[in-house]
Nucleic acid binder design. Sequence first.
RNA 1: GGGGGUAUAGCUCAGCUGGAUAGAGCACCGGCCUUCUAAGCCGACGGUCGCAGGUUCGAAUCCUGCUACUCCCGCCA
Length: 561
Amino acid sequence: MKEELSQLIQQSLDSLVAQGHLPQDIQPQVQIDRTRDKSHGDMASNIALTLAKAAKKPPRDLAQLICEALPKADLITRTEIAGPGFINFFLSQQSNQAVIRRILEEREAFGKNNVGRGRKVQVEFVSANPTGPLHVGHGRGAAVGDSLCRLLAATGWDVSSEFYYNDAGAQIQNLALSVQARCRGLQPDDDAWPEDGYRGDYITELAECYQRRDRIDAEDRHVTGAGDPDDLESIRQFAVAYLRREQDLDLKAFGVHFDIYFLESSLYQSGAVEATVQSLIDNGHTYEREGALWLRTTDFGDDKDRVMRKSDGGYTYFLPDVAYHLNKWQRGFVRVINEQGADHHSTVTRVRAGLQALQQDIPEGWPDYVLHQMVTVMREGEEVKLSKRAGSYVTLRDLIDEVGRDATRYFLVARAASSQLTFDIDLALSQSNDNPVYYIQYAHARVCSLMRKLEQQGWTWDAQGALEHLGELGEEHETALLRRLDRFPEVVANAATNSEPHTVATYLRELAGDFHTWYNAHKMLVEEQPLRDARLALSDAVRQVLANGLALLGVSAPEAM
RNA sequence: GGGGGUAUAGCUCAGCUGGAUAGAGCACCGGCCUUCUAAGCCGACGGUCGCAGGUUCGAAUCCUGCUACUCCCGCCA
């Protein structure tokens, strides 16, 4: 609809140029906005304001000329010049109603587009090391990352979701030592307890399972406990598998799936890390100092150079990060989005710098990052500290068990990633019925209920027939709903390109609000069939868009509540 | 000291990439169930968009400088 309007304005401008009212060399950027206030019509353009200077005419006069030169079109009932020189367009009811037709024809596909054109995109998220259960911060990453995947798939991208983790580093060693200590009957406060060992209860359970020789089946690995407390390597293998399986269960309970689990250790085994070092040396971006090998990341915008190889010969985490992202590039992802906690923001410049230093023609801003700010958890008015070592923290599973999957997902995805999030458990629990997610789901269930009621009354309804009667709609709540529905494809498109899934949540809240208002103002199941059919068509369209939107957030759309 | 993020109603947050009179939800106050789901609706209250400049027809939005809070700044990941 915007397109059509924009073309009409363009034609008008062309004829004004031809008539000499406008100079030849103008470069109009025709912009059409939805109006916020319905007294301003349906759409508005600021074109006269932006061209006024070049045209050497007052904006309102220019707007008048543009309106007069506008070709006749069915979709416009009238235009109005307002304020400093806006042109307001009042669209015909028919053009407003067209959206219902479109939704009922496209169904699940309404809102989708093909801007991705089948190109490959990867979203890496969560990427928690297997040293403990997932906590709320990981939950935010999971909710945002998974929703991003859904948005990208809906906009025509070939999406791959990936979980990256280190299965062999110092922290894993620490984990193995902690389990070993438990196997030997040690307590965290004993003198012999490993320094910085993990203290959580799950370490005890892990040790018991290992000694019982349990078999562990995680998504990406299968291990049977050896039972021998002296075999640290076996303990390590077992512990990693055990915690990976725990995380699998967390993710499954959250409705999040990964296509690929990528191991940091594989980068060493394949020689990718070595090759990356060599390539960086060959390209002349490194130097040695104090026995360590440095990469001159300052050449690429970093504020100081970074060590790649320590003086003891080991690599810093930075190097496998670069090797990993080179690997992603080689896998053909034109777009990569890394969803991480904002505490990792300093790696952004570093990884990009490392990739530039490889001189493989990787674009400068590649990859993309979505960094979410901290999640703090409040319980009984106090902040719950997230300390893995102390073992007392709120896990994602706790949250799902207490608050429910849908509410947890909604809470964690409904805010802009850049804003800090306070997850108040008591609030989420005590007011679980006032939760915004239920408000949206309730609207969906209400429509489903209407359809059931319709049958009980012995009436029937079909979309095709109902479309004949759309002319019955036109009252102000209905117009507001139609306008809101019409926006959905734009919301999806913007959310996907800007990596902002929270805007979908905001939209759904507004749509549900419009629906509840309308529902309360009118009876849907009226005697007159044309009006009834028309209202049910609108209801069904709302239901469909709510379902489509909730699916993008990974939240269910219940038929009854 | 350097960098990331944030600052909008009592509280939690939106604000469609610069538009017209800044919006929701909680909380508080007053109404609406013999009628399709009251997990709902209607109304009232509530604002110096952190502060100060700048850019222009027009700024919560862009630029500069401050202030506050928060996170990072290791040859840890």
